[in-house]
Design a protein around this nucleic acid. Sequence first.
DNA 1: TACGATAGTCAACATGGTTGACGAAATAGT
DNA 2: ACTATTTCGTCAACCATGTTGACTATCGTA
Lengths: 158, 158
Amino acid sequence: MATADPARPGFALPLLLLAGFRTLIDDLHAELAREGHPELRPLHGFVLQAVGADGTTATELGQRLGISKQAAGKTVDRLVAVGYLERVDDPTDARRRLVRVTPRGADGLHRSAEIFDRLRERWVETLGPKRVAAMEDDLHTVASANWFRLDVPGWFGG
Amino acid sequence: MATADPARPGFALPLLLLAGFRTLIDDLHAELAREGHPELRPLHGFVLQAVGADGTTATELGQRLGISKQAAGKTVDRLVAVGYLERVDDPTDARRRLVRVTPRGADGLHRSAEIFDRLRERWVETLGPKRVAAMEDDLHTVASANWFRLDVPGWFGG
DNA sequence: TACGATAGTCAACATGGTTGACGAAATAGT
DNA sequence: ACTATTTCGTCAACCATGTTGACTATCGTA
């Protein structure tokens, strides 16, 4: 292994990426809790995002998130229980039950976007705009294939 | 929000970090499977790393990983079942059961370190050594508090 | 009309996490 | 030395997330 630099071991890179992700998500949810959304969990924000403004169905949501329709249905159940999603019958197809973001869910989604912008701005203040942009561009170069794959608990845990 | 750049929305940053992490971990386990360790899951490598060469106990492992001693014990059970860890009685303290990495576990750990070095080298070839080093340094600056916190499934999923 | 495809649900299970309770063993205090 | 406290491991019950398989109801079509 003539290429490996002992001062920069390869195993540090994934831990740093995970730590960066975790820092942003933890800060987001600390702020969300302050702004009236303490029940939102990391996974929930991404699910709300995947449902989108037009609504969707459990089966389609599962396809978007890369999980089974059953798992998507169970996750929707939980978000319905805390008031972020609602189910309505599809008048054009009695098999389908449309999943829609409630006003409360839309509020959480809107605040999340604002908070993420503020958090990025904090990184820019610390690291400089060029370094943050470089990080984004470089990650996009090496990891674009895994954009928006959010089956994290099952993927990571096994 | 006069500071937010619409071309670089804040919400992209966590997704890129997660995608980068996921890319490295997926590539690691694809290669590990090729080299004779198909049972190793993403979580397992970090647990083996946390056990370390000297061994530890379930309670101490839980403290290192930021999870309960019960959760650590269950994870150890599963890694014992697939042959990566073993439990031995502590001759100096009949309450303790030392958890040790088996030769097979040590082999997996050793290969993981080599593979991570090779994966980092691939990033260096694509992005250049300065950019990769900058990414590491910057992440260390903004996220060092979350170094080696690996309670990912529970943290992310809720 | 009858059949195949699709949507949703139910059931059973695996994995990873939690809290609470408890026995056994070590340690500290009187 | 005896007792009280702490510590370690485990058991049990439960939650969240995921899986696969089976099933019903409905839609669309040959």
